[in-house]
Design a protein around this nucleic acid. Structure first.
Lengths: 132, 132
DNA sequence: CGGAATCCTGCCTGATACTG
DNA sequence: CAGTATCAGGCAGGATTCCG
């Protein structure tokens, strides 16, 4: 439904850029960043620009379809640049932009958290599962 | 599944806690944290414990199914506690644990990024779309 | 109120084949 | 090498109904 209810419109006006409003661009952004492949692609490009096939190898388990789709959307959002070098065969290089790099900083925090708190999570999970 | 294949065990030994290995617990954690509802639930519980119906109202657009599913998984992972008060009708309260609160700090960074870089993304997107 | 159970739809995703 | 196109399936996720 393209129209908003009165309640939705009221909420939108009241708190612009509210992450809890589904229609808010900031929420859309959050949804996009929540994409599992987005995180991995950005992390893979952290140190240096990479070619398509390199990315495919680094990110184990991704299909070409998803990799291409993710790269396109990230390019569209200004997170990375796509450079085609007309060699034979053609060479395509992906590189983070400043914007993408700034997001990477946030993701780095996420990654650090995952690696340092994983034990606690596994413990909690085991404890939960052992209960009737 | 308690058992690992030889290949999985080899991968686990070779690069422990490698985010790019699909079988790695840290990757699993990342996948889970990438869940869009997880982010929103944790943000909703930031200030104070909330009841089920309060959460459903705060997080616009979530179905009961997804809300319940997300809450269960977060409880299992030790991110929040579920307290049942036997009133009539029953009252269920969800509250962040220390672990959950530590993750919230990371998410806060994500939220800030989304709200402060949204304009740049929208600009990049418009520029991308205007090209042939 | 706070779910659990059920059914059903769609799009996410993988596999395969083809192009430049 | 770096994709695009197509097909097919599986499961995420929504809507609905019922229960303690």
């Amino acid at each position: 439904m393209p129209t908003m209810t009165a309640a939705q419109r009221r909420a939108a006006e009241k708190a612009e850029y509210d992450i809890f409003v589904a229609e808010c661009p900031s929420r859309r952004l959050l949804d996009r960043m929540s994409d599992k492949w987005v995180t991995l692609v950005l992390c893979a490009l952290e140190d240096e620009p990479q070619r398509y096939s390199q990315l495919a190898r680094t990110i184990a388990g991704v299909s070409q379809k998803m990799l291409t789709q993710t790269l396109r959307s990230l390019e569209r959002d200004g997170m990375l640049t796509r450079t085609v070098t007309p060699t034979v065969p053609v060479t395509v290089t992906y590189e983070l932009t400043g914007l993408g790099r700034s997001l990477l900083v946030v993701f780095a925090g996420l990654k650090d958290w995952a690696e340092s708190h994983m034990d606690a999570v596994l413990e909690a999970r085991a404890s939960y599962d052992s209960q009737p």
